[in-house]
Amino acid sequence: MDIAERAQALAMKIRKFKAGIETEEATKNAFVMPFISTVLGYDVFNPAEVIPEFTADVGVKKGEKIDYAIVHDGQVQVLLEAKKVNDPLRLEHASQLFRYFAATNARIAILTNGEVYQFYTDLDAPNRMDAKPFLVMDFSDVDEALLPELAKLTKEAFDLDSVISAAGELKYIGQLKRVLAAQFKEPEDDWVKFLATRVYEGSFTQRVREQFAPLVDKACRQFLNDQVNDRLKNALGGGSYVRGVGAPQVEESEPAPVETPPAGVEERGGDVVTTEEEVEGFRIVRAIVCGSVPATRVYARDTKTYFGVLLDDNNRRPIARLWFNRSKKYLGVFDEQKVETRVAIERVEDIYLHAEQLRLTVNRYLGAPAEPPAA
């Protein structure tokens, strides 16, 4: 498996088991050791490659231990300190890493809770660990753009010089992306003012601020949606879309149990008609799950009552159903037994609110044996 497949396998394991992990030791065994062995490729049971409970006395601090030291070419190259999963990582958690960093030859330090991995080096001052990470890898939503950098720390492709040379750019790009993500999620007053004053020529009063705050929020969401749609139009071949993208049209034959439509909702008869909202919904679902699978594996089938999104054109692997042929919109999501639950949504963009469930569904299929399509 390549680095992306190994990372996705660990991400799926974390999603499946993290709710039942209650201690730091359990976190190490379930998630951190597999990260070192499966993702980075080091033998956690070989003390020449991985040293657990690593000790390096620092000043008056004697006998303190750091959770793992990773050895490459006979030298300690990476220090790793682990905390319990679901506990937010804070700078004070890295106190031992700060001390040990100066006492060893290691140039990379990792602070993790088993799900989020923060990577540090010494960009600001030689032999002194920086206060901010240069790379953050979150396995709840793997950023595949960072995987080539992570690959440089693997046993088979270890390249410390390349990691350090790229760290400065990665550090600031990562911080800028997190700032932008926060502003797109909940715009601050300065962000609203920055954008509003570029389109509004009058004085920026409190009344104007109140007027533009929801407009900035809406514009940001629409901009992101437009970017996703443009990307998927290119993937679909210039934006052309026909009924049942990537698959022939079929009538309803999926085996997953279907609930009775909510009260007040009536089925629409007549021929199958694919609407623009269904197309947009499909693109959003496809964009959400394409971090786990290639977009070419996500298919659409429109039926008389709902618009289905499938993995591998297999009606035994439903990802979602779009119940848009009615006055009230519903998104159908699936549990481990492929039982559908419909959740009401007001706008097509609200599908993004259920991104974690959609990714979880796909990852369950990836970890299960292949099934033939239903007859």
Rank of each mutant, 00 (worst) to 15 (best):
A125S: 09
A94P: 07
L215H: 09
I319W: 04
E156S: 11
E169C: 10
Q337H: 08
A370F: 13
C290P: 00
R286Y: 08
K329T: 00
A9H: 03
R347T: 11
Y200V: 05
V273T: 04
A7Q: 03
L353R: 14
A166Q: 12
A374C: 09
F223E: 12
L322H: 03
M129N: 04
I14P: 07
A196L: 15
D143Q: 15
T205P: 11
V285G: 02
V44H: 10
T38R: 08
F139T: 00
Q337F: 01
L80N: 09
T361V: 06
Y100N: 15
V78S: 11
V71T: 02
A213M: 00
Q211P: 10
L311P: 03
N315T: 14
A247M: 07
D313K: 09
R364P: 02
D189T: 14
F31Q: 06
L10H: 03
D87Y: 09
I345V: 09
I110G: 06
P369T: 05
P34H: 12
F35C: 13
N363I: 03
G244H: 08
Q222N: 01
S165T: 10
L311G: 02
R6T: 00
N225W: 11
K84L: 06
N46L: 03
A182E: 14
T197S: 08
V199Y: 05
L322T: 00
Y172V: 01
E22F: 08
Q206Y: 13
A7W: 01
V265W: 00
R316T: 01
T341Q: 10
I51C: 14
F119Y: 06
L180T: 09
K171T: 04
I14D: 01
I345G: 05
K18E: 07
D138S: 07
R198K: 14
V285Q: 00
D350C: 02
E53Y: 01
P187L: 14
A256D: 05
Q227F: 14
M1L: 13
Q211K: 11
A368P: 07
I351E: 07
F17R: 10
P126K: 14
N315C: 15
M129Y: 04
A56H: 08
F324E: 05
S95Q: 08
